[in-house]
Computed example of a mutant assay.
Amino acid sequence: MIVVTTARYCAQCGGAIELRESEGRMREVCAACGAVFYRNPLPVAAAVVVNEDRELLLVKRKYPPEQGRWCLPIGFAELDETIEEAALRELREEAGVEGRVRGLLDVDSYGSEFYGDLLIVTFEIERTGGHEHPGDDAEDAAYFPLDRLPPLAFSSNDKAVAAFREAHEEEWSIQDSFRRLATDQGVRPRVGALLSDTLVDVVESRAGHIAEAWLAEVREHPSTQTLAGLDGRWLQAETEFALSRLGRRLREEAPVGEVNEYYRHWGAELASRGCPLAEALSGLSLLKRAIWVGARGSGLWERPVEAYRILEMFTVVGVFFDRAAYHVARGYDSVEGTQTRA
C-alpha cells in the first residue's frame, strides 16, 4: 500500500510531518516531537431489512461510487452517534423506513478507491414504521425477493446478505414445512416437500429392522397375544413391505384408493386368520411406536430443526395411521361372519 501524508504540520507542536517506519509500517510522524498520527478505516453502517414475504429492501444509488446500482441502505457513521444509530439513520434517510436493530450480521473491510479503507458494519433491522421512498441520495427504494436479487454494488453487501440467509435458513425451513403440513392434512393435495421426508426415507431404509423390533414387541405385549400367534414370517414380510413404501404413501405418490385398499385387504386377512379387531388396532399403535423409536435413533436432537423434523414426522405418521386403522376396520366389516370385539 502506498502511504502519502495527509497533513504537513503536527497538530501538537507545529513541527513538520514526515513518513517514517513505526511499529512495522510506514506512518505519519512528527519530526520534532515524535507524535505518531494513525490513519484508521472509516466506519460505515449498513442495514438489512427483509419483509414478511422474504424480500430485501434495496436502494438505487444516485451518486458515485457505483451510481445507478442497487445496494443496502448504507453510509458513514457521524460524530456523536453509535454505529447502530448510524445504520438506523441511513435506513431512514435513504429509504424512508424506521426500524429497530435486531442484531449484528457482519463486519467487513473494504478498500475503496473513492474513500480509502472502510470498515463496514451491517445490522439486521426490523421495520417498525415509515414509508418506503428514496431519499435525496437515492434514485429508488424497492423490495426484491431474496432469491432474485439484482447484482449488488458492494461485495460487503453480498457477504452480509449471505450471512442473513444462513442465520434464518433453519427458521424458514421449519416455517415452510409447517405451512405445507397445516394445509395438506386432509384439506388439499400435498404440495412440496416436508422436513420430515428425510426421516421417512430413513424409516424406509431400515424397514426390516423396524419390522423385526415391532414383531418382538407384539409377541410380548398383553394386548396382541392372538396377533403374536399368527405366522411370524407373514407378519414380518407384510410389515416390512408396508414400511418400505411408507414415504410413497405419505407423500401421496401412491393413489389414495390403492393405499385404502391395501389396508382394507390387510384387515380382511387378519379377520380371516382369527385376529380380533382390537388386537389389529393395538398392533398398528405398536407399529407407530416402532417407527418413532427407529426415527429417533437416526440422529441427535441438537438443533431445533432436528427436533421439529422428528415431531413433524410423528404427526404425519399419526394422521396416516388413523386412516389406516379406519380401513383395517372396514376390512374386518367386509368379512362375512367375522365377529369383532372391542
Rank of each mutant, 00 (worst) to 15 (best):
208 G>N: 08
26 M>P: 11
335 V>W: 01
114 F>A: 12
57 L>Y: 04
324 A>F: 02
165 R>W: 01
55 E>T: 11
281 L>S: 07
82 T>E: 13
85 E>P: 03
117 D>Q: 13
102 R>T: 09
206 R>K: 15
172 W>L: 14
239 T>G: 04
30 C>W: 04
283 G>I: 02
139 E>P: 04
119 L>I: 07
162 A>L: 08
244 S>F: 05
176 D>H: 13
339 Q>M: 12
278 A>R: 07
129 G>Q: 11
204 E>L: 04
114 F>M: 10
107 V>I: 12
17 I>R: 10
83 I>L: 05
339 Q>R: 14
11 A>G: 14
46 A>W: 01
171 E>W: 05
324 A>L: 05
120 I>F: 01
274 G>F: 00
108 D>S: 09
203 V>R: 02
97 V>G: 10
302 E>Q: 07
137 D>K: 06
112 S>I: 00
269 E>P: 00
297 G>M: 04
228 A>C: 10
340 T>N: 10
309 R>Q: 10
265 H>Q: 12
326 Y>T: 15
190 R>N: 00
50 V>K: 10
111 G>P: 05
28 E>S: 15
285 S>P: 04
136 D>W: 09
95 A>G: 11
244 S>K: 14
329 A>V: 08
328 V>L: 02
337 G>D: 09
272 S>T: 11
319 V>R: 06
237 A>R: 15
249 R>P: 10
198 T>V: 13
299 G>K: 06
142 A>R: 15
261 E>H: 07
310 I>G: 03
179 R>H: 10
62 K>E: 10
150 P>W: 01
327 H>L: 03
89 R>M: 08
86 A>W: 09
43 P>N: 07
81 E>F: 03
110 Y>S: 00
162 A>Q: 09
297 G>V: 08
170 E>V: 14
209 H>E: 15
156 S>N: 03
40 N>P: 05
298 S>F: 00
224 T>R: 01
88 L>R: 02
38 Y>V: 14
80 D>W: 13
180 R>T: 11
329 A>F: 06
236 Q>G: 03
240 E>F: 00
70 W>K: 03
253 E>T: 07
157 N>V: 00
108 D>Y: 01
159 K>D: 02
270 L>T: 08
315 T>G: 05
161 V>Q: 02
253 E>K: 09
2 I>M: 13
100 R>I: 01
329 A>D: 03
337 G>H: 06
290 A>Y: 14
325 A>K: 07
16 A>V: 15
300 L>H: 00
180 R>F: 05
158 D>G: 02
134 P>M: 06
117 D>F: 12
314 F>C: 08
53 D>Q: 13
267 G>H: 00
198 T>I: 11
261 E>Y: 05
213 A>Y: 07
54 R>M: 11
202 V>M: 01
203 V>D: 04
272 S>K: 14
215 L>Y: 09
230 L>A: 15
302 E>N: 07
28 E>F: 10
340 T>Y: 05
246 L>G: 05
250 L>P: 09
227 L>C: 11
234 W>I: 03
130 G>W: 01
16 A>E: 15
43 P>S: 07
105 L>Q: 04
122 T>G: 01
247 G>E: 00
59 V>M: 12
280 A>Y: 03
91 L>V: 14
72 L>G: 03
157 N>K: 01
